[in-house]
Design a protein around this nucleic acid. Sequence first.
DNA 1: GCGGATCAC
DNA 2: TATGGTGATCCGC
Length: 607
Amino acid sequence: MESSGQLPADDQSSESARGEDYGTLKYQLLGPSLTKAGQDAVDQQKVSEIIYNASKGSKFFNHEQERDRNLTVKIERILKEKARLERLDLSPDVRRTDEYLAELELSRDLSQHVIHVDCDAFFAAVEELDRPELKTVPMAVGKGVLTTCNYLARKFGVRSGMASFVAKKLCPQLVLLPQNYEKYTSKAKEIRAILAQYDPLFESASIDEAYLNITSFCEENHVDPDEAVQRMREQILENTKVSVSAGIAANAKLAKIASNKNKPNGQFRVPSERDTIMMFMRELPVRNVNGVGRVFERELDSIGVKVCGDIYPQRGLLAKLFGEKAFQFLAQCYLGLGRTKIEPVENYERKSVGTEATFHEIGDKEELRAKLRWAAEELEKDLARTQFKGRTLVLKVKLHTFEVLTRQTAPPRAVFQAKDLYAFALPMLVKLEKDIPGMKLRLLGLRCTNLVSTKKVDINFFGLAAQTKPSTGSTVDEKAECEIGTEEAFETAARQEVQDEMNDLEQLSQEAAGGPDTSEPEITSSTGPNSSHLEQWECPICARLQDADDRAFNDHVDFCLSRQTIREAVQGASQDVPSIPPTQKRKTPSHPSGSGTDPRQKRLFFR
DNA sequence: GCGGATCAC
DNA sequence: TATGGTGATCCGC
């Protein structure tokens, strides 16, 4: 089905070692979505020539070339290591992997009906709803880089992720539309309302993809999964005018693969029988599995693993060549195992919040500071929206050569204000400027990790306070908190907040004492929070100015903040209509917690 | 823990 | 002329 997605034949590796084999580079330049639907009838040879010629000589091209060379070297190392291992006795490794496979086999669960739903060329489809005349012409959404294109455009070799000027070379009549994210979000909402009828606990994987567990739905309505999905797809098409494709299988991994089989506007089911699944996987190109990208594909290809069936003969080598996690991942691919637990994204704990932007090459220091200020302000907004502070701040830059660098720092306390974000990021930027003479950037970004929730205390119908932090499992016993009055809850929560922060500070100061200082002292003192470039810190709540004692001031701010958030929550709650949160439950919560998790499982957060 | 790299969409 | 933004995870050090 995906015969077009062939790696270039690698006849002589000595040639590619010197970087003279452009086959792999051209393949690389084709972009990551080569295996996507709609490419079957395309002359990939011709397309890759056009892309190659359009890119040749650019900084982007040079960077890709460099990466390609590095990968080729890495693969040679892998092959050398493989040859060395093969001279040894691998039988203990083979035995160990067989034990692992047997263990995995025991966890196989074929009782669930998991489906993956994927909107066809979503952004393009939504645009076509507003302007039907676009249906008959090749069209793409996105400015510098395409995010989506319709199937007519794909006939020309145009793909998502492609630079628009390259797409124009492939298809001069291509119509380009700017993104209208709100439009897509609102359409996605319509679709999700329908999905919820089939599984109220469905999992949004992205704006246009979702996983559902329709086991209960099928039981209750006495329909088989094919029929249920057929009905659901018709309902979506009728009500929202968007066509979707779907995969039906015993687990999420298989369902995801299956949803690509009959795209667009189709569905495919992998029967829930062990032998059928094994046969299905045996012929499946590893690249079609979520988590195997262009790099891993080439690495696997180099040791003769093209389809999942090829994993088995190599099982004794995989852990040593690619690491334990990769081995476990491949073992599950071979067996066709995946998770059966589907849950709302809200259940997932966010790990980071960040922002970044690309711009014309900038070397000017003042201009770069302006970009950094912009990033700090954007990040402040995003942190406010998501209600987090960050204990770690990460600066990301992309040099004019397309090389990406990151630097991180742990401020003395969790940060969330633009002023602080800027103040702590600046020394990192300054150090980079010092280390890289004549540094020119084309991208700059900031990200917070090690998040601390700043979610307001939720005063429910009974006037009782309870933390609404996501279920990290680390929060206090909420039942206990519900037995106390508002005033007391106020004090308790405030104390808890301060205590949390003090624990954090304690930990941070201990770590700081042991670890090396990452920033240059003179830079820190000239550009840090106490810098003369910036105002003195003040408490954002009561505007008290920072005094000599850092620690005491920090504690004061945290206490002030926690009081404030509770106060706001109390005021807000008195105006709101009291409501008991609907208890969403599947009728049969019979999800044995799946067989193994995908190590490269994506966790995307929309809204 | 840090920084680079890979991956998904 | 010109190649994105957000978030997650893994590995080597």
